[in-house]
Amino acid sequence: MGALLWLLIPVLAGLAAALWSSWAMRNRKSGDVAELAGYARFRAAMERQEPAPTVPDPASDPV
């Protein structure tokens, strides 16, 4: 009887692994719409040409 209990451990581990793998490989319905929209906003922000802020030169300060 003890040997059957020890065999139950790998069987339960196999069932748990099968359940986990079926959950991990499920079809997700969310899609890539949000990720693609975020990437498009990122590209638009990177392509914008904004002038660099100018720092006043302390040597040309008339004070």
Score class of each variant (00 low, 15 high):
1 M>Y: 14
2 G>F: 11
2 G>S: 14
2 G>I: 12
3 A>Y: 09
4 L>M: 11
4 L>R: 12
4 L>Y: 11
5 L>K: 14
5 L>M: 06
5 L>T: 06
5 L>P: 10
5 L>Y: 11
5 L>V: 14
7 L>C: 11
8 L>E: 01
9 I>A: 10
9 I>V: 15
9 I>C: 02
10 P>Y: 07
10 P>R: 00
11 V>F: 08
11 V>G: 15
11 V>K: 15
11 V>Q: 15
11 V>I: 09
11 V>N: 13
12 L>R: 15
13 A>T: 15
15 L>I: 15
15 L>Q: 13
16 A>L: 13
16 A>P: 03
17 A>W: 02
18 A>K: 14
20 W>M: 13
21 S>T: 14
21 S>Y: 11
21 S>D: 09
22 S>A: 15
23 W>M: 10
23 W>Q: 12
24 A>H: 06
24 A>R: 14
25 M>N: 15
25 M>S: 13
25 M>R: 14
26 R>I: 02
27 N>H: 14
27 N>E: 06
27 N>D: 06
29 K>T: 08
29 K>G: 06
29 K>W: 03
30 S>H: 08
31 G>I: 04
31 G>Y: 01
32 D>E: 04
32 D>F: 02
34 A>N: 04
34 A>C: 07
35 E>D: 12
36 L>G: 05
36 L>Y: 10
37 A>T: 10
37 A>D: 00
37 A>K: 14
38 G>W: 05
38 G>H: 04
38 G>N: 06
38 G>M: 04
39 Y>E: 10
40 A>S: 06
40 A>Q: 13
41 R>A: 15
41 R>G: 09
41 R>M: 02
43 R>P: 03
43 R>G: 01
43 R>T: 06
43 R>W: 05
43 R>E: 12
44 A>Q: 08
44 A>E: 07
44 A>P: 01
44 A>S: 04
44 A>M: 11
44 A>L: 06
45 A>W: 00
46 M>Q: 09
47 E>D: 07
47 E>G: 05
47 E>C: 00
48 R>N: 00
48 R>V: 05
49 Q>R: 07
49 Q>L: 02
53 P>M: 00
53 P>N: 00
54 T>P: 01
54 T>Q: 00
55 V>G: 00
55 V>L: 02
57 D>H: 03
57 D>P: 02
57 D>A: 03
58 P>R: 09
58 P>Y: 06
58 P>C: 06
58 P>W: 07
59 A>M: 12
59 A>L: 04
59 A>K: 00
59 A>T: 10
59 A>D: 09
59 A>N: 09
60 S>D: 10
60 S>E: 05
60 S>P: 07
61 D>T: 04
61 D>A: 09
61 D>W: 03
62 P>K: 02
62 P>D: 00
62 P>S: 00
63 V>K: 08
63 V>I: 08
63 V>L: 14
63 V>T: 10
